[in-house]
Amino acid sequence: MTILETRSVGFAYRGGAPVLSDVSVAVSPGRNLALVGESGAGKTTLLRLLLGLARPSSGEVLFDGRSLRPDREFRRSVQPVFQDPYSSLDPRQRVDRIVSEPLRAMRIGARDEIGDRVAQTLRAVGLPADAARRYPHEFSGGQRQRIAIARAIVCEPRILLADEPVSALDVTTRVRLVELLRELNTARDLTVVMVSHDLAVVAALCDEIAVLDRGRIVERGPSADVLGSPRHPHTRRLVASVPRLRRSSGPPGEGR
């Protein structure tokens, strides 16, 4: 069973060379999926297709087994989080207004329930209750990304599509946000589809990996297989390139 999938989709921006060719990926409930690749591989374009923000030039995108129509039901079920928490939040709106926007836009819940849902969602992402009345600039990068996640999950979607959600953050913050996403995955039945070039984040969060290289999927499978015994040379190169503390210093605690 899959919630969202692409069947041999191709995509070209107007007048351009194909950005994606014959790409098939499937999102199964509960199985976090990573779309991995380097710049220009087509990750973000694929995410746009999955979000219904662009239509494939060939092939099709299916949502619950039917051709994707970006209607209310779809938008309620599939929500995005972007890389830069500084540009994705309106600086002139208070946090409660930002977080409640999907509810208001999709007319979910009665007016008097909205405040409660916002408060409950802010709690779920680990923000203090008084966050609701404050403005985005009063928060750190990590807290802003929590606000963006709160906005995305307030309507209880089934899928969170996240484009490099932690790569703009410092490492301590990054670890905590990955924890939060994993928690939401289990506690809320939320499946995370993440675009990333960072294999450490991918390993920590995702069960499945699809590796993109120049618009094509070159390898796909459970994370343990793809990272543990990569078959495609491109994947092998990616895995070997990750800077690792282990390599520069040996495992922790073992004096040499």
Binding site: A200, A203, S223, L245
Partner: peptide, 9 residues
């Protein structure tokens, strides 16, 4: 941060 990656690869 890299623990899971160290475990898998």
């Amino acid at each position: 941060f890299e623990a899971e990656l160290d475990r898998l690869a």
